[in-house]
């Protein structure tokens, strides 16, 4: 259970992260706001409450791992890492720029705190499985968290990996799907329907939990349930709103991969309660 104080702190972290996302995308003039904003609560929860990590020792061997399989949502990861102190916040405005430590998609060689490079969809669950297998082999109790997009589930490798997680009983791995129902060319249902997302993972042998992906209480309960589930991995389906927290971006496929113009950024920041 989260205390009122913790809830308030996480809510404020989420607000700060949304502010970072809007500002860094406006400065970059390109990037992916929609799927970054829809994942804010999950990353705020993991990076400011759940994960055993140390920004001063990003490679600490026993740390919990986070895999951003939907690598295009890099801004939300950078917002979390900067806010958590992995690097100075002044770097955020260098997103996607030449020689920046924060590349267009996550690059573990350049950004402290990034556990794996990503960007080509469908590979992160496999990577997370590898990390979880290593933990089991070394008898370590760190946990692995993997975030996938809903459109990403159209990649066949996701289902290869979903079989591996179950086959190896990776109960030290918790995966999330950011189920915001939108991808670049339209709604998931229009582009290539996934039909029964939770049913698919259940059929593959996963423990499946469906929650409101913007609720910290729900996240806290689901992650605890995942941790208590032994002998199989847990998939948490996050029912989310693409572009969450920015009125004109919410549920708009067009904001998948388009940066806000200065006046749009100003409006978004005002809605989030920032001065400019």
């Amino acid at each position: 259970m989260l205390t009122q104080e913790q809830l308030q702190e996480l809510t404020e972290k989420a607000r700060q992260m949304r502010g970072h996302i809007i500002r860094m995308l406006a400065a970059a003039k390109s990037g992916h706001p929609g799927g970054s904003l829809s994942s804010v609560e999950l990353l705020a929860y993991l990076y400011f409450h759940k994960m055993n990590i140390d920004p001063d020792h990003p490679k600490m061997p026993d740390r919990d791992r986070f895999v951003l399989s939907k690598g295009h949502a890099a801004p939300v990861l950078y917002a979390a890492l900067a806010e958590r102190g992995y690097f100075d916040k002044s770097h955020l405005t260098s997103l996607r720029k030449f020689k920046s430590i924060i590349q267009g998609h996550p690059d573990m060689k350049r950004t402290p705190g990034v556990d794996i490079s990503s960007g080509s969809l469908g590979q992160g669950l496999s990577v997370g499985n590898g990390m979880a297998l290593a933990a089991k082999l070394d008898k370590k109790n760190y946990r692995v968290y993997v975030l996938m997009g809903d459109g990403e589930l159209e990649e066949g490798q996701v289902w290869e990996a979903a079989m591996t997680s179950v086959h190896y009983k990776l109960d030290n791995l918790t995966a999330f799907v950011d189920y915001n129902h939108l991808q670049i060319d339209g709604t998931i249902e229009e582009v290539k329907s996934l039909y029964d997302v939770p049913g698919r993972f259940r059929a593959f042998g996963w423990h499946v939990i469906e929650i409101d992906g913007h609720s910290f209480e729900a996240l806290d309960k689901a992650v605890a349930e995942a941790e208590a589930t032994k002998g199989r991995p847990t998939m948490v389906i996050l029912n989310t709103c693409k572009g969450k927290g920015c009125s004109f971006m919410e549920n708009q496929a067009g904001w998948h991969g388009m940066a806000p113009k200065p006046e749009e950024a100003a409006l978004a920041l005002k809605e989030l309660g920032f001065d400019a």
Binding site: I116, S126, G130, E160, M163
Partner: peptide
């Protein structure tokens, strides 16, 4: 047997899983 991972007919999954193992200090 504990250091061998049968990945089934899924080469893409195998390569990325090997990558994950390598991030944790294994030599896959």
């Amino acid at each position: 047997p504990e250091r061998f991972f049968q990945m089934g007919i899924a080469e893409a999954d195998m390569m990325a899983t090997a990558g994950g193992l390598a991030t944790a200090g294994k030599i896959p």
